Simulated assay, not measured.
Amino acid sequence: MKNPIGKKIVDIKPSGIRKFFDIVQETEGAISLGVGEPDFDTPWHIRDEGIYSLEKGRTFYTSNSGLKELRTEVSEYIKRTQGVSYDPLKEIFITVGGSEAIDLALRAMIDPGDEVLIPQPSYVSYEPCAILADATPVIIELKEENQFRLTAEEVLEKVTDKTKILVLPFPNNPTGAVMEKEDLEKIAAVVREKDLYIISDEIYGELTYNGKHVSIVSLPGMKERTILINGFSKAYAMTGWRLGYACGPEEIMTQMVKIHQFAIMCAPTTSQYAAVEALKNGDEDVKMMREQYNHRRRYLLNEFKRIGLPCFEPYGAFYVFPCIKKFGMTSDDFCTRLLKEEKLAVVPGTAFGDCGEGYIRISYAYSLDNLKTAMERLENFISRL
């Protein structure tokens, strides 16, 4: 029989996050700090709007691009947070989570052989999606001495005549790093000079703890070069609703919608009605959750300092990325032993790229009680090392 599986798919490694998630499900009494999912319930008024949409029989397809009302609310949201205007009918469309938007953007924009610059450590989907789109991923190693920010010099070092897209994954998963306005201005200058496009994944934009998140689309000349990707999973605790959106130039959005049209049809209708309510009346919910995350963030950083675990201070998302190099173990060995000996699951830094070696990712999207128990177990483990 012919091999039924394509080589391109076989060569892609499965998610390193899910590997430990699956193991912890089989480990009795284990605590997991490995999954980036808010521990908060979706705020009640948002759930209620979803329930109401079902009660009213709103179970039909929406347009491929999504409910006009939701696209209008997305447009208003970006205008009030970033001062940038998008046409809700031509420059915005609704996706099944931010992950679908990443996939569609790459597939719509790439020709075989085009290069995509991907800073790492970063979210696990960028590199596989680039490969599936027949692009050549080019990795830029983010460095702790730069607070895991991307520098213009690092971009210039990797740009070639084949470079087409730069992925901008900030606030960053797994490091929690953010980009300040002055950092983005330097990146924007390179992008304009080298005639590049940007895919800016801003799913953690609302979870910024030291000032306000700045999007690169707010800088001169960058809106027309950027696909802005965001969604509802993280800020509004709506992971299971599977809803995101993409904003960008009409010519690119048209092609992204075409792929979405054939592969998905439309995002879940109930989720879209709930998301309208989230954007209209969810600011206080986001503020409350952000304050809770910030409290947990400070708690973990203080605990790391007390037990002697080096960790730079992250100002975004809900992850910390402590360094374990002094223990002389690989990230995978450290995490495997920690789970086996203390029943505590965290994620090896290498799940987010080879340059994550020597680090582990800990999510603080968990209750303070869970975090306190986890730190006791981590301290016990480290004390034996």
Rank of each mutant, 00 (worst) to 15 (best):
135 A>N: 06
126 Y>N: 05
128 P>G: 11
148 F>T: 08
141 E>K: 10
146 N>F: 05
146 N>M: 01
145 E>L: 08
136 T>F: 04
120 Q>H: 06
147 Q>K: 03
118 I>E: 00
113 G>L: 02
148 F>L: 10
115 E>D: 13
122 S>V: 09
116 V>Y: 14
145 E>M: 09
115 E>K: 12
123 Y>M: 15
146 N>Y: 10
122 S>P: 12
114 D>E: 12
124 V>R: 13
125 S>F: 07
132 L>F: 10
144 E>R: 10
148 F>H: 12
148 F>P: 14
121 P>N: 07
130 A>G: 10
153 E>F: 02
144 E>T: 15
129 C>R: 11
138 V>D: 07
118 I>S: 02
137 P>Y: 05
153 E>N: 06
140 I>D: 02
150 L>V: 02
140 I>L: 10
126 Y>Q: 06
142 L>Q: 01
123 Y>D: 15
122 S>N: 13
114 D>T: 11
140 I>R: 02
143 K>W: 09
146 N>C: 01
147 Q>C: 06
121 P>Y: 07
131 I>T: 12
123 Y>H: 13
149 R>L: 11
131 I>N: 06
132 L>R: 15
141 E>S: 12
154 E>C: 08
124 V>S: 12
151 T>Q: 08
127 E>D: 03
129 C>Y: 15
131 I>Q: 07
124 V>Y: 14
154 E>S: 11
119 P>Y: 01
135 A>T: 08
151 T>W: 10
133 A>Q: 04
127 E>G: 08
